[in-house]
Design a protein around this nucleic acid. Sequence first.
DNA 1: ATTATCTATAGATCTATAGATAATGC
DNA 2: ATTATCTATAGATCTATAGATAATGC
Lengths: 217, 217
Amino acid sequence: MARPRKTEARDTRREILDRSLELFAERGFSGSSMRDLARAVGVRESALYHHFPNKKAILEAILAENGPGQVNAVLSNELEAMVEALGPRQFLETFGELVVQLWATPRERQVVRLLMAEWPRLAAAGVFDLQAQLARIRARLTRLFEHLGSRGVIRPLDAEATALRFMGPMLLIRLVHLADLSRPPDLTAMRRDLALHLDGFWESVRPAAAPTRRRRP
Amino acid sequence: MARPRKTEARDTRREILDRSLELFAERGFSGSSMRDLARAVGVRESALYHHFPNKKAILEAILAENGPGQVNAVLSNELEAMVEALGPRQFLETFGELVVQLWATPRERQVVRLLMAEWPRLAAAGVFDLQAQLARIRARLTRLFEHLGSRGVIRPLDAEATALRFMGPMLLIRLVHLADLSRPPDLTAMRRDLALHLDGFWESVRPAAAPTRRRRP
DNA sequence: ATTATCTATAGATCTATAGATAATGC
DNA sequence: ATTATCTATAGATCTATAGATAATGC
């Protein structure tokens, strides 16, 4: 048989992308051959070339699906409104849980691994610029903390420093708890670390409990 | 000519390790062939096999040199004594500069890139366990902050959370400023971010300026 | 004799293409 | 006629080895 019957037809393009992301994440782009990919999908190499012109095109299609738009989904334009609606303390709680939901999926974990390994080459090829992405996230958080500081929701600290100190531990937590694909993630431990971070963060930015103004000379 | 004269002799093993680290860091382990390595060193492939049994052995030799012992060189056993000697504020300043000196070398940057890309496979092969390394660093810092808290050098916060909030931004700063090998690092910007982090960190942990004890019911 | 290189090459693996085959949808 | 697969294969590249050659150090 050459072409499969309709009943046994699959969305091969879809499967190529999914299996390729799995393999690229586990073994790296150069560590996965077209032969490996074909075997994982269950077709011949030539079938891959029917759907994509070459290996690089598969990687680019994966990143087009899972790249920029997805990566910073946490940072919507409505953060300010959310803080307003929930209050800062409750907001942080919600934010933490959101992060668990968005980051702990198998696909997100695979994408992060792939980016960790390949980002300098992806940036050089103009496919995905992780450094710029991090700068954008930082700028967004800086804006948020400036806003909250000016409203008195948090103390009027240096907003850029606050953004750095908010992001850093989030990144570390993501790396420690979600980047190792060889084991299922321990979400309990992850939530514990998130709570440690967010509680401590809140303590360090919240306005003085009683707003007693000290006079200065 | 086959074997070179003494006058033109080089430490080929040394050069293999250095050039291989460069290539592995830039293109990944699987992305660098023995042919690439030989060309970079300026010898034939067979000369590589004279010094190492295979490609994996080159990687392992690189990590034996630059692995565990080096990676956490910042975390000596004398941190407590240093804080005592310098005072916490001056200590943080010194620590920041130490980190710049240790992390900004070409070799350290290459090692970090290599580890970022290959760590899950290295851990699986029992060569280098980044996750365990991070856990060790975190435990060390937790111990430090417990010590400082009990001495009243910093406020008696949760030491584990404090360690997380100290480490996270350091990792982010390292990633943002030093992991891109395609450009020389902007050390001024890096020092600025370190100062932002360390100043803010200090503000969030230092004991209340005037130790006025509030009475509680 | 030992060490460090070279030339030459075997054999495996990889990317990519040509052309055959069969199911689908007009 | 078009689409999605297959078989078969070309040609490049890769890892690794065999055996030759020449310098070194006893």
